[in-house]
Design a protein around this nucleic acid. Sequence first.
DNA 1: ACCTGAACACCGTTCAAGT
DNA 2: ACCTGAACACCGTTCAAGT
Lengths: 230, 230
Amino acid sequence: MAAKAVRQPLSRERVLAAAVALADAEGVKALTMRRLAADLGVEAMSLYHHLPAKEALLDGVVETVVAEIGAAAVGGNATNGGDEDWRTRLRRQFLAARQIMLRHPWMPGLLGSRRTIPVGLYAYYDGIVGTLLGAGFSHRLAHRAMHALGSLPLGFAQEIFSPSSAGGSMEDDVAEADLAAMAEALPHLTAMVATEIHDVTDPTLGWCDGQTEFEFTLDLILGGLERLRA
Amino acid sequence: MAAKAVRQPLSRERVLAAAVALADAEGVKALTMRRLAADLGVEAMSLYHHLPAKEALLDGVVETVVAEIGAAAVGGNATNGGDEDWRTRLRRQFLAARQIMLRHPWMPGLLGSRRTIPVGLYAYYDGIVGTLLGAGFSHRLAHRAMHALGSLPLGFAQEIFSPSSAGGSMEDDVAEADLAAMAEALPHLTAMVATEIHDVTDPTLGWCDGQTEFEFTLDLILGGLERLRA
DNA sequence: ACCTGAACACCGTTCAAGT
DNA sequence: ACCTGAACACCGTTCAAGT
């Protein structure tokens, strides 16, 4: 955030790293050319020497995070040898991808706003498809599996009820609303919360454990694929 | 887009409807106070008489689409009586939700950027949980199912490889790149595309059928839940 | 070659003013 | 009550200028 003591020359990599850090710290909304430049101890216009425009900056930011995900997958493969079963391997990779997504909660939204697919993503999915084919999947089923699994980190990273959903839990709304009225309007959710946690006076949905939910869904999909495997 | 012939007075509903239409037509990026006002044939500052700020406008836009999804679910229930099996019912509701998401492809990203959960969403999920409980699900399993299913339309609406992914198919990238080099770097994807479609000279990933992929994943999850049901 | 400062066209928003 | 116009603080970006 503060100006650097030593002023190494700017570079595309340094700019992108600072951009990711800024987005992590204060959200994509705070990621402006002027603010980013200030974080780098430089004038806004200097950035244009390393990136042609803001769109290119955002593309670069997405590509940086995709590379991070790809590196985690490859790194995990190396340390685990080749003796993993396909489910274990994919499970590990998607859990790692989710961890990275959680560190960059703005990523799904930004990814959705890009007009070109980050090239690193192709390599990532190629590895997944390779694992599936190696386990005897047909091309068609591997294709379906790629979509089913691929959308998972995206959807869960912006889960509505997740506690990481930038503050604003159900609690806030309920504080003002009539609790009895809510129980009447949402009988099933109210009953579910009452059963799952036993403090009915705090019916926040912050009790949702995103990690548990994610693993549940992941295993549901992996199990279903195992059953369909040729 | 053009000024109205008859100038009915502005209202929150009219502003929100115009905002959704503008976002559908030109993306959220085009949704500025000034542009929205111009579409309504009015001065930008007039909007502030019906909405306190732009954040409130965006909240209202999200709430409008959520209401649309909720209405589709309830409407479908009415015309289908109560004799549906739980899977058929949820399947129909999620396919309907997906159709609406496809009409508003900016929705997941916008939803992710909101700080408060749209209240209409609680009612929607309450209905889903109700269906599950009615089918004998435990509260715990209904909770898991709610997360697994709930994240599905979000993830798929911004599927990377989907053709609706705002132009920019793989084709564009490949046009510049060496085709042989790609086959080497992405052997499994290349083989998969070659098998699934037979025109290898056009290795676009636009052949992905989002509807088919969505239904496949949906059925994978529904099938898994059926097996876990108490 | 890399960085700067002033300038331009845009944006959300305030405020005093119109009807 | 509802709408307007000028004004302010911001933003991305161009361009001529500095070293």
